[in-house]
């Protein structure tokens, strides 16, 4: 009898080991999705480009070469090796502006996602944990935000606050937040009734500890997937605001703003329009590819174990 018990005693698993095991399992499912791995590598490359921008960029993003206005890319007729992707209508090097633009886009994605994620989690936890009238008020407010097309709401908010990148990011974060609130609330309501939460409560955990330490870590899967979606949406919306003249202001090398400045030259110089948009597309596509992989890896329903 005693032998049986000792044999069954599980090995002591440290948190470090468990975390490593979870990471391993995560990578197993994530790396099964080839697109997701490609997306991850492209994204890492973009981060490297953004960080090393001052080193890699051949020119300053603001310097205007007045004798080289609207120079086509190097492979086209009239192109030159000093401006690989050509120059814009005031003679700035497009490649350098794109490289610096990566800093803008990644920062926008990071800032907006962090803001809407933190705000959404806080509000969602409160709504799902306390329920009652607080919940009703919060959810109605979220319904109101969702009743507007997000870009229109962001546009109007920026018109109120004044056109700038900061205001644009705040406005976009506000329009993305309801998704996080809804997800967190639904997850909290499901987790709250489970035994481990009751056990923690009986053991004397207060509401703050219950919300943040006990329940929240078990709701992270869907939130991470939603965060990647928000990251790409934030980049798209910020670029759209920039394109409409309500986001980052010239001469900032933000990709959407670059497109806005290039609009009147589309039929004369295709390259000033093509490359900034391509940069947006590649970035957003890489993040969405990663998002699909994350969804496969984190959604227990899809796991084929």
């Amino acid at each position: 009898m005693a032998d049986a018990i000792t044999a069954k005693t599980p090995e002591i698993v440290t948190t470090g080991q468990m975390r490593r095991q979870m990471l391993k399992e995560f990578w197993f499912y994530f790396s099964e999705n080839r697109g997701a791995v490609i997306g991850l590598f492209v994204f890492i490359a973009l981060v490297v480009v953004a960080v090393l921008a001052p080193v890699i960029a051949p020119h300053s993003p603001f310097e205007q070469y007045r004798d080289a206005v609207l120079r086509p890319p190097v492979w086209a007729e009239g192109g030159s090796w000093s401006f690989l992707l050509g120059t814009d209508p005031v003679g700035r090097d497009i490649l350098s502006r794109l490289i610096y633009g990566a800093q803008y886009s990644l920062f926008i994605g990071l800032f907006v996602t962090t803001l809407s994620l933190l705000g959404g989690i806080l509000v969602g936890l409160i709504a799902g944990y306390y329920r009652g009238w607080i919940d009703t008020v919060i959810m109605r407010l979220m319904d109101i935000i969702l009743a507007f097309p997000s870009l229109l709401l962001a546009l109007v908010l920026v018109a109120i606050l004044g056109p700038s990148l900061t205001n644009g990011m705040i406005a976009i974060a506000l329009t993305l937040q309801p998704h996080f609130v809804r997800l967190t609330r639904a997850a909290v309501m499901e987790e709250k009734t489970k035994d481990y939460v009751t056990a923690a409560r009986i053991a004397g955990a207060g509401p703050i500890r219950l919300m943040f330490r006990t329940i929240l870590p078990n709701c992270t899967g869907p939130l991470i997937v939603q965060a990647t979606l928000s990251f790409s949406n934030a980049i798209l919306d910020a670029a759209a605001l920039g394109f409409l003249g309500m986001g980052a202001q010239p001469p900032a090398p933000e990709w959407g703003t670059m497109l806005a400045e290039a609009r009147e030259f589309i039929l004369r110089a295709w390259w000033v329009v093509t490359f900034p948009g391509l940069a947006i597309l590649i970035t957003v596509l890489a993040i969405n590819l990663m998002g699909d992989g994350l969804r496969d890896a984190l959604d227990p329903k899809l796991k084929r174990s």
């Binding site: 697109g35 798209l236 589309i266 948009g277 391509l278 947006i280 597309l281 957003v284 596509l285 969405n288």
Partner: peptide
């Protein structure tokens, strides 16, 4: 599905400009 993901990631204001360059220009 690859094409669909590209479409889903598309900045449509740029897509519109590209189509104008190609089909109108």
């Amino acid at each position: 599905m690859g094409i669909a993901l590209v479409g889903y990631s598309m900045p449509i204001f740029w897509w519109g400009l590209l189509l104008i360059i190609l089909f109108s220009g």
